[in-house]
Design a protein around this nucleic acid. Structure first.
Length: 622
DNA sequence: GGTACATGCGCC
DNA sequence: AAATGGCGCATGTACC
């Protein structure tokens, strides 16, 4: 399996970014749906680049005015560079892919991601111009950029103007790159930048695949939901005389003024309100209301059902139906690498206009309703959907960061941690089964400590049991209190400049400080590493990745690659991660990592097979 | 007619 | 006074 890896994944060294053999480049494209390369309606208009002094062809500029087919003749020049550089590189990489480049062969450096890595969790403007300004380049407003933002298609802009504009952006990007990589090196951030940028070409490829729906299942589900929705709406109208159940204002008036509900209260007896002090009408709050009359019971029941049905229809099923009717069952989303405060990925759907609706609709890839995962299938008949995820990932990562012997024991002895939750809650006078208890198990890992008395007892038992973890998290809070930032063991810094201790002893931002490092090491470092290796190692297989959701990867695979897929996910989620963390971050991950694999005809179907692999480093029990 | 905010809810 | 993190999308409402 090693054969498939490029040099930069075998000899892992973030200092590769310091090479003088680089190419900085930028592309101009037609402007349908922002010029995205997954739409065949678009084409490449112009590509400009600048070679660094160490490039075999020598320092200098290049350009190709023409389509992706014209650019195909220039790809060797890109392969010859140690690093290819761009601002928001994923966009341009997808165009290189359409020109025929093998994205697995190039090492990428993205200056937009560089700014994000330096920023940590601080919000900064990441556009090329805003970034240029921070590096001492005043941006000038020129005609071409004005034309493009006004919606003029670059293919109709005079060739000389566009070329000058594009070369200018390349120059600016090169300037940023040279200064930025020094800064990253000085601050110990090259390893993080390396990880982020290794993921970029993988995401570029994954995004181009899109996901495919099962037409029959979509229609069937849509019709059933629609039928129920109409029936329940009618019932509710009859009951209320026709209030808009989607309007928080009208629902509040109906609940509290007409039906006479007492507002639900929190553990202090204060009414639960919205952020701006209005009476709450969300589903959780409604569940807390004390029902006294038949009208109240009926309304609550219908409202809760309509919430579910309405959201399912307007946020998923109407879109899915449109995709099946008008887009050949396939749709796309983008992965955003520079949005979240923790450095996780986020996802946005690409908006689609369907004939049945006036407004564009979109569905992102990371909050798909569980019930609808089974509506997804492979685009190839007879193929399967395969999913691999990181087993108990955040818990294990928390254990590692806290070097917590008890977490280690529980993992290695297969202790049922949710049962401990259920037992503790029950013993504290809140009888609970394992399933219900699950919701509480990891709340204290994220800094949660409020709830019923029994819940609070559980949280305190958790902190007592996993003392190493808790003490480490307290240590982070103290560091932030003193320094206003936290330096993680892998180099990334998070900033909380407004952190202070209140008279009660409570430190502001405690929850975020508890959470960020755990969430980040698990889902911003470890999973991306696994995705990168899975993407490279599957190069010569037929399978391909179609989605990744925080701790999981979703693929389409032919049936004869099932065994290989299982082996590969173990390799990528465990061995490759151990090795990468050691070589790139000098982190000897001395906790076991594992993976769960699920393969079926539809997404999320099939039996899960779990595998845990011991690390060659093991926590020394004291 | 369009934009910004508030609210609610889906996922990990 | 309150105190679990992170997102994106749809709808209603206020306002220009």
């Amino acid at each position: 399996m090693m054969d498939n890896l490029p040099d930069f994944l075998v000899d892992l060294d973030p200092d590769r970014f310091l090479s003088t053999n680089y190419i900085v480049f930028d592309t101009e494209t037609t402007n349908y749906k922002n010029g995205l390369a997954m739409f065949p309606e678009n084409s490449l208009v112009l590509t400009c680049w600048s070679r660094g002094p160490g490039h075999p062809r020598g320092k200098g500029q290049g350009k190709c005015y023409g389509s992706e087919y014209d650019l195909a003749g220039h790809l060797e020049e890109f392969y010859e560079a140690d690093v290819i550089v761009a601002h928001n590189a994923k966009f341009d990489l997808q165009w290189l892919a359409r020109a025929g480049i093998d994205l697995r062969r190039v090492l990428v450096y993205d200056t937009m991601i560089g700014e994000y890595v330096i920023a940590g969790n601080r919000r900064v403007q990441l556009t090329l111009n805003a970034t240029a300004k921070r590096y001492g380049r005043e941006s000038k407003v020129d005609t071409v950029s004005t034309m493009i933002s006004a919606g003029v298609c670059p293919s109709t802009i005079p060739r000389e103007w566009l070329t000058k504009y594009c070369h200018q952006d390349v120059k600016v990007c090169e300037h940023i790159f040279l200064r930025q990589r020094r800064l990253l090196k000085e601050h110990g951030l090259l390893p993080v930048q390396f990880t982020r940028c290794l993921l970029t070409p993988a995401l570029a490829d994954i995004e181009m695949n899109g996901m495919v729906l099962d037409k029959e299942r979509v229609y069937e589900t849509y019709n059933e939901y629609n039928r129920q929705f109409l029936a329940k709406s009618k019932e509710l109208d009859a009951l209320t005389g026709g209030i808009n159940w989607r309007s928080p204002k009208q629902v509040a008036e109906y609940l509290y003024d007409v039906l006479g509900f007492e507002e639900a209260t929190d553990y202090r007896g204060e009414p639960i309100r919205t952020k701006t002090g209005n009476r709450a009408t969300d589903s959780d709050t409604i569940d807390k209301l004390k029902i006294r009359t038949e009208d109240q019971r009926k309304f609550v029941e219908l409202k809760q059902e309509l919430n579910k049905l309405g959201a399912a229809l307007s946020k998923s099923l109407e879109f899915f139906k449109g995709v099946c009717d008008e887009q050949d069952c396939k749709f796309f989303a983008q992965f955003n690498q520079t949005v979240t405060r923790t450095h996780r990925l986020s996802s946005s759907g690409i908006p689609m206009l369907f004939s049945e609706f006036k407004k564009e609709k979109s569905v992102q890839f990371q909050n798909m309703d569980r019930n609808f995962k089974k509506l997804f299938r492979s685009r190839h008949d007879g193929w399967l959907m395969a999913e691999a995820d990181g087993a108990q990932l955040e818990f294990r990562v928390g254990g590692f960061l806290g070097q917590d012997a008890m977490v280690y024991y529980d993992i290695t002895h297969d202790v049922d941690i949710h049962q401990f939750t259920a037992d503790t809650l029950t013993a504290a006078g809140q009888p609970t089964n394992r399933q219900e208890a699950k919701a509480h198990t990891f709340k204290p890992l994220y800094g949660g400590n409020s709830g019923t008395n029994a819940e609070k007892e559980y949280y305190s038992a958790f902190r007592e049991k996993y003392r190493g973890l808790y003490e480490t998290q307290r240590g982070w809070v103290n560091q932030v209190l003193n320094n206003k930032f936290l330096q993680t063991p892998w180099g990334l810094r998070y900033y909380w400049p407004d952190t202070r201790m209140e008279s009660s002893g409570y430190v502001t931002n405690t929850q975020s400080i508890f959470n960020y490092p755990v969430q980040a090491l698990a889902t911003a470092e470890i999973i991306p590493i696994a995705v990168v290796y899975l993407w490279h190692r599957s190069k010569d297989m037929q399978m391909f990745i179609v989605n990744t959701i925080h701790d999981s990867v979703i693929c389409e695979i032919p049936p004869d690659e099932q065994e290989l897929f299982k082996e590969l996910s173990v390799q990528c989620f465990t061995h490759d991660v151990y090795n990468y963390l050691d070589k790139v971050y000098n982190l000897q991950f001395n906790f076991p990592l594992g993976t769960g694999c699920k393969i079926g005809e539809h997404w999320s179907e099939g039996e899960e097979i779990k595998t845990t692999v011991e690390s060659r480093w093991k926590l020394q029990e004291s």
